[in-house]
Write a protein that binds this DNA or RNA. Sequence first.
DNA 1: GTGAAAGCGCTAACAA
DNA 2: TTGTTAGCGCTTTCAC
Lengths: 350, 350
Amino acid sequence: MAQRATRKTADKTPDIRAVAALAKVSIATVSRTINGAPVVSDKLSKRVWQAIKQLNYFPNTHARSLVSGRSRILGIIVENITNPFFPELIQSFEEIAVAHGYETLVSSSNSNPANLATTIRRMIERKVEGVAMLTFGEEEPVLNQLVIHEIPIVLAEFRFDDPNVSTILLDYKTGIHAAVAHLAQLGHSKIAFLAGPHDIHSAVTRENDFRTAMEAVNLPIRKDWIIECDHTLKGGVAGFEKLQALADRPTAILCSNDMTAIGVQRAAYLKGMRVPQDLSVIGLDDIDFAEFTLPPLTTIRLSRSDLAHAAFEALRQQAEESASPKKQREFLVSTSLVLRSSTAPPPAKA
Amino acid sequence: MAQRATRKTADKTPDIRAVAALAKVSIATVSRTINGAPVVSDKLSKRVWQAIKQLNYFPNTHARSLVSGRSRILGIIVENITNPFFPELIQSFEEIAVAHGYETLVSSSNSNPANLATTIRRMIERKVEGVAMLTFGEEEPVLNQLVIHEIPIVLAEFRFDDPNVSTILLDYKTGIHAAVAHLAQLGHSKIAFLAGPHDIHSAVTRENDFRTAMEAVNLPIRKDWIIECDHTLKGGVAGFEKLQALADRPTAILCSNDMTAIGVQRAAYLKGMRVPQDLSVIGLDDIDFAEFTLPPLTTIRLSRSDLAHAAFEALRQQAEESASPKKQREFLVSTSLVLRSSTAPPPAKA
DNA sequence: GTGAAAGCGCTAACAA
DNA sequence: TTGTTAGCGCTTTCAC
């Protein structure tokens, strides 16, 4: 009761008025000072900062967002935070966002559409200024809500015709062609491909690029050597076993991602096969872990940092240009082959 | 211009007034309906929900937070999102939080104090209702700001005397004693320990538990067999190499975490040593990856889900009891040994 | 059970 | 350059 007697003596967290009172200025001046408006005199500005420090004042972002209409929050949705590729990506994205004064809301879809819908709802309620959907193909069903709310979106490998939607194109082709050429040069002609799930755009693109790469070096594409896996360790194990069950087996396996490749390495080891002497393996992503597999994995590098930069940049441009006519943009992120120790010439014919 | 002529016809995102108008009720009734206040009649409630749906209305959380003083945001700060233990932990925590209607702000300290301070500032500005600091020992310098703002905190393995600070105690002892006993039973007497950084509480606790476990089975503790690493793959490699440089070498290595153990496995492989025939290795955490190492890693399981539950529960209790006298709480999360294939009897004497 | 009205803490006109 | 003031969209007394 006593505490509520007067505003000024209450020991609640200080607000902009408290700062203004202590600095003997108006609240507008405090607001201008905090937001770096160029008109405040040095004298007052100094008094204000001093008062802020003295009171240990923190501006209330909710009030700020409410009146300004800008939340300074960005959303990022990934497929599966448990695949090491994504934490590394999130980390990059957050660093960039924080450096630009944005907060990040992270969420993973886990390939669950209901989950995704809830996430979108949460993000809309929090008034995010943009969403990076790095789910590589699961986004279509929910895109609509975001588009209706005119929230800028950036997608990977999927074009959507709306002025608020930008796209990041991933040039897998360069890396995959280099990988296949590398294998061919080592003398491999029997090359298998462990694909990702066909409902993921990036998986389909990767598989297509594998096909054209094989054609480019005049190597046969065998249907039973292209197997759909699920981008997980277990998927790699399963894919390897299917290949082993075949009468005619490949001498090299290119995998749609690193996790699959690591699964293959493990499965091969358990079967008593040596990588790379008995079997060459190449991954895709170059997650931090790839360097530490046994043997260290040769892989196609897809830079998380490049991807994160592109995603942030796409969103920032759209959000901060809200006045001018919005337009879609396209960004390109490239890939490259990283040579380590999981490839070698094929074993001599038995 | 034309668009701004009147509020009612403007095509901006609908607000509570628009819903009230369409449902022909007051905004208070809309608010009550949304928040499930028990007084609204079925008839009006139905009209309101119908209007909400028709307008595709989403309540503005910033306005909500501003007036209610509750943001329904929780913060979680981890040491390093790149260690697979943490994404799994974050995932669990977020799921629980979302299920209870909370949003989560994620951040990793990356062992950078300046970073941590910024993070805390961001979280205070966003008015988080609680922070889970799962940094295992880097939290002290910034605890103060949070405490001043009376924000509920939950810490791992560190007690702090303040009514807003709860603690999760981790019972490493059970798991570590089981691991050492398992090794002793296999016939090992030369057991090394690759510790974590000494400025991390959990690392110190784990090391101490290793010592008491060794005493419990009457095995000698050798100083040069206890090496401080850094909980990373590289650290494990380095630790292994230091051990190999010794004249008298251990036959088994217990590691302070899984990443270290995986580093050891890799380094041993490169040296031509076989795990477990030549060297037994045990990890701690049981990250998802542990099951897929070569060979599958025997490790001490620390449940991410249990930890996440404890952390959320601690925060929720503190946040939702704000009226009644707050009190510190303690939670306990236990560990257990998971037997896989990286341990075996020591090699016969040469 | 329902509505009217007073703010929550801040930004952005507009005045001075 | 600085101050005054009108809301941002919502929750919550307080009347009815």
